[in-house]
Design a protein around this nucleic acid. Sequence first.
DNA 1: TTCATTATTGAACAGACTGTTGATTAGTTG
DNA 2: CAACTAATCAACAGTCTGTTCAATAATGAA
Lengths: 212, 212
Amino acid sequence: MSLNNTDRRIRRTKQMIRDALTELMEDVGFDAITVRDLTEKADINRGTFYLHYKDKFDLLEQCEREVLDELAQVQGHVEGLQLENFYEHFNRGEPLPFIVKLFEYLKENGAFMRVILGPKGDPLFQVKLKEMLAEHLLKHMVKKARIEMAVPFDYFKAYVISAHLGVIQEWLFSGMKESPKEIAMTAFKLTFLGPRRAAGLISDEQNEKTSP
Amino acid sequence: MSLNNTDRRIRRTKQMIRDALTELMEDVGFDAITVRDLTEKADINRGTFYLHYKDKFDLLEQCEREVLDELAQVQGHVEGLQLENFYEHFNRGEPLPFIVKLFEYLKENGAFMRVILGPKGDPLFQVKLKEMLAEHLLKHMVKKARIEMAVPFDYFKAYVISAHLGVIQEWLFSGMKESPKEIAMTAFKLTFLGPRRAAGLISDEQNEKTSP
DNA sequence: TTCATTATTGAACAGACTGTTGATTAGTTG
DNA sequence: CAACTAATCAACAGTCTGTTCAATAATGAA
């Protein structure tokens, strides 16, 4: 069976290539990378690359898939930790466990995540990550029936999910100073209270008229 | 002077190339495009391409810069239309004029904007667009002094700006069904009321406790 | 219209990268 | 140790790049 990943040589080679990919993407961006660059930086024969990957796009795709799979697994580990609803979590001052786990994972894989979600990254990965976020976030938020004068649901969804991605990016690129729990709580407040209340631009009591 | 863009041949050639770029990006993505592809689709000599652009990246950059410059000009045309503040606009049921103009411009250049902001697009352009959005959006929102237990400003900023980009993308990719004014109002509501209130997931009166 | 200017063309060039092959060497598992 | 198989090295044709040159065509100004 050649499908087994048990051979130390294979693991080593793949790791070298992936590390090289991360480094090179940081430096010059994915576009400018050649298979030659990758194998030179990884210090392996160029032919060896093609033993494992079809081309550089295949390499990127495999790396991305791995990240997404691992993120999906994370979700499995927090099923038990969820309270009944969104609201209850907030009132205890606790962020959603899933989001905390998400930020913990991002921190572990900081180097790759920074590159792939950065200005030289892959917009397709952003789309995939947003799909995953949507799946796990929205089920906590949409328990109650909807009322009057509502914004279309798809735009609510796009708004919230994109906003969360924005927080993730800001966190990654500003050096991940806050703990996963803190930053998860920040994201939570922004959505739960709305950005203006969360940022303290209006107080809780001082209700602006919302008539029209 | 060869810097003049008055020569009809130059204008024609550049336009052919740019159209080819948009079409090809839609089909195969920027990565997979060669200068050969571009010039064949544009039906011009390959050497001619290099008379105007350094390489395909230079082409993309020039196209992006042009869009951003035009968007910046749009801002100039609405200076007079702004009310004193954010709050007043909302209470009249009117979105910010700048955002309306933004969506109008996006609609005019729909084809290119869809590609560049899509899964095969350019993440660097997203960053630049967000910078522009930040500049024009935030000055309307941050009039009042900030209060207690606030989320860090940078995260508020990242949240709101990213969220707006999300609405833009959702609108572009779902066929731009709403009018620029409608969709601008949708984005406005989501930020002004907060996403949950805007989507009707909680009512205005029914204030959830926000104690912790 | 004429004329000087200049954008475009077509062909050719070396250089680089790709993806594949075959024979050989080296490392791994049991 | 022995069988297996991953990694290496060299070489291949094919494609794309970026540049150059002389020849041609289109343009704007007088």
